[in-house]
């Protein structure tokens, strides 16, 4: 087995871990760092439940090797603390079983940060990367739009 030391910076904490070079970031986050917020949903890049930020960019962590993410800032759902988007998801009932939620939230968080003026088209372009099986998506749409609207109020 080909293992090596990998330095990961997750949620502003540095970690040195020993992993297979073929291990995905998702696997390492969950099994080595105990950060089980990012979820395995397909391990095939299709569902978005494992989305994390690498260098502020949403990435499907099942499709990236841990070693690729070495030395780059990684943000997982555990790194979001009382953000407007988390509150909006709660207020708008934008999740039920909660399994897709970490991935959706991370993606929506990045969207609201990077595109505070996002129009419907941009919102769709970003959020169609994640599958939710419980809600109707209308709740998620309301949550994201409420955060975008608040940003404008604050401007």
């Amino acid at each position: 087995m080909i293992k090596c030391e990998i330095l990961l910076t997750v949620n502003e904490e540095s970690h040195s871990i020993i992993a297979r070079q073929a291990d995905t970031l998702l696997f390492v986050l969950r099994n080595q760092l105990g950060l089980t917020g990012a979820k395995p949903g397909c391990l095939n890049g299709d569902c978005g439940a494992c989305t994390v930020l690498v260098d502020k960019t949403p990435i499907k962590s099942c499709m990236m090797l841990a070693i690729e993410a070495a030395e780059k800032p990684i943000t997982t759902i555990e790194g979001l603390c009382d953000t407007p988007i988390q509150r909006a998801f709660i207020e708008q009932f934008a999740f039920q079983c909660g399994y897709c939620t970490p991935g959706f939230l991370i993606n929506a968080y990045a969207l609201t940060k990077q595109h505070p003026d996002a129009d419907d088209e941009t919102i769709q372009e970003w959020l169609e990367s994640n599958i939710c099986r419980c809600t109707s998506y209308q709740e998620i749409e309301q949550a994201v739009k409420s955060v975008l609207a608040k940003k404008h109020e604050n401007d």
């Binding site: 089980t36 979820k39 759902i77």
Partner: peptide
């Protein structure tokens, strides 16, 4: 009343645990 679900904060912070999270 639209009471928010009891496990809501666990679910938006990644703390909610599912079977495969118990490694």
């Amino acid at each position: 009343k639209s009471v928010i679900r009891k496990e809501a904060w666990d679910k938006v912070t990644g703390r909610a645990k599912y079977t495969h999270d118990y490694f």
